[in-house]
Design a protein around this nucleic acid. Structure first.
Lengths: 346, 346
DNA sequence: TTGAAAGCGCTAACAA
DNA sequence: TTGTTAGCGCTTTCAA
């Protein structure tokens, strides 16, 4: 590979001239004449010269890359449109702004490896953390070391953290209120994993909607499904072991996957959806539309959130003023057949 | 950030000693005593010293990262389980081998930007190209510059290229033969985009299966669907505009998505699947099992292919002997209801 | 077993 | 408008 010195020598110019010409922008204290400039460009093309970004990075302290950190690498195979949307939005936005992307996962079961700080590394100018665990040491560390860092899908514990989130409480509330308005009073909730930050607010939204409607909260209607299919299945089986009179008439699941498992359990029992038990899920994944019956679900604007988080990180790295550190994007309800609203309408 | 010199000074040792201790492996011509070693480690911990990978990279010429190049960034949002599996397998394998991953896309409509060579860059030690366009200049370039490069899902034009692929011809053949064995003679094919390398062999497999069975190939039964949903829908609509007697009794689609669109068109016409028209798709995506009726499909071992490609690239970078440059992994058939085989069986 | 020092390719301050 | 030069933080050769 040709170096900057090769180009300089061959063009009869100095390295700084070459650097100035081939870099262009920046705080150059150097001005190069049109002729020299053209010569340099010419020679560079002849030699197939390409700037070595590693060397540049060492001296500037900037890499032009950001790190995208996923909680675990298997996040992708769980037919999870969430990861897909995140990758897609972040990558597209980064590329549009001419940034590179390094993909990381917090290996192991949690963020231990990541928390050790090995992700704070000059190969990236900042980090985008996807669904970090609550009270993530990595976030504190970034804050402490003044390393640019934005959390995506995260309920920040304090004002200093940069985070893009959607309103999970509103999601739980909207789902539950929708079912209440359809006439349901005995509404079950399939909870997510407690260590995942979205679980608690979704449940709280559920509770608040019930309370607002004057419906007493029945803790025996709340079961953990841990966001997975068989979790939903098992929880539903348990609910159906109760006396018939105590069966829920509706279920709000904390994600589509657990709803899917629960629906399977319901159908196995010969019950009909939504006539016997109505369902609302969360995520509005593409699976939701394909289920039988199609699943009503709360929609998180993941793609838009990814874009915002990426742009916020870029601004943060550029030390730009960030007007809103913790935007919360609105959720919405995708009504399909599983909740019974469409039958009522038609 | 503490540098290696800070550690050396504070530990009363030389930088080379610190380097040797904190690096460990490698071709060190230096041996450090246990005492000094312990002291260095101690000081490093106190100072929170972390090796600067950029500086190391500059001197060693190695980065410990590989680039994963997707054809376009929107590859992800097309609820494409393909991209998901690739990312998942590559990331997991890379992390297991302690490699980092940079994510790239060939911006624009094709590989132009990528082909300019800007991806061949010392920030990565090698490239993994996902579905590069046939005769990709980037591959030639890597070969010419002796830059490690492995193509994934690619039919290599010559022996020099490292590529992991599955047997698309066998896939097309297997799908079609399956339908023939079920008694079908008028089998349509929904073709993929010609510029995508998998399209031609799949179609050729289809043709060969027909020929082998002594069925004349009817070009009017072959329609482009371009791997997208509405492509399949439109193609099927066209096919159904023919006189009833010339309708295909079975369809082999070059991917599940186009099959899905075609199925929609068939159902809209009040026809039944598989009784009136049988279907076989390609990809065996998660959607396949959720469709109504569940779609019989050819399964490509994408995850396994991603693992192999990643490991091959790692071996290539390490200048290890590669016994098989162009492994072709076997496809298989996932039989569900859309082809009618299950009805016959029961 | 250790230390000194050259240099990876580049940027940017400074001098001309 | 241009050239010289001192590093960026590290690895590694060579000499002690």
């Amino acid at each position: 590979m040709a170096t900057i010195r090769d180009v300089a020598k061959r063009a009869g110019a100095s390295v700084s001239a070459v650097s100035a010409v081939l870099n262009g922008g920046g705080t150059q204290s150097i001005r190069v004449g049109a002729e020299t400039s053209a010569r340099i460009r010419d020679v560079a093309r002849q030699l197939g010269y390409r700037t070595n970004p590693v060397a540049r990075s060492l001296v500037t302290g900037r890499s032009g890359a950001m790190g995208l950190v996923f909680p675990y690498s298997s996040a992708f195979i769980e037919d999870n449109t969430f990861s897909t949307s995140v990758i897609s939005s972040v990558l597209t936005t980064a590329v549009n702004h001419r940034w590179n992307l390094m993909l990381h996962t917090a290996t192991g079961d949690d963020w231990n490896a990541a928390d050790s700080g090995e992700l704070i590394d000059p190969r990236v100018d900042g980090l985008l953390l996807v669904m970090p665990t609550p009270h993530s040491p990595l976030i504190s560390r970034c804050l402490r070391e003044r390393f640019p860092c934005v959390a995506l899908v995260y309920a920040p514990e304090n004002d200093e953290i940069y985070a893009v989130n959607s309103n999970d409480h509103a999601g739980g509330y909207m789902a539950t209120r929708h079912l209440i308005q359809l006439g349901h009073r005995r509404i079950a909730h399939l909870e997510g994993t407690p260590t995942v930050a979205t679980s608690a607010p979704r449940r709280q939204g559920y509770r608040d909607a019930l309370e607002e409607a004057g419906i007493e909260i029945d803790p025996s209607l709340i079961h953990r499904a841990d966001f997975v299919r068989h979790g939903g299945y098992d929880a539903m089986k348990t609910l159906l072991e109760r006396p018939t009179s105590q069966w829920p008439t509706a279920v709000f699941a904390s994600n589509d996957l657990s709803a899917e498992g629960a629906i399977e359990a319901v159908l196995e029992s010969g019950l009909r959806i939504p006539q016997d038990i109505a369902f609302v899920g969360y995520d509005d994944s593409w699976r939701a539309a394909l289920l039988n019956p199609p699943l009503t679900s709360i929609k998180m604007p993941i793609y838009e959130m990814g874009v915002q988080a990426t742009e916020m990180l870029i601004a943060l790295i550029a030390s730009k003023e960030i007007t809103q550190r913790q935007p919360v994007l609105p959720i919405s309800l995708s009504v399909r057949e599983s909740c019974g609203a469409q039958a009522l309408r038609s």
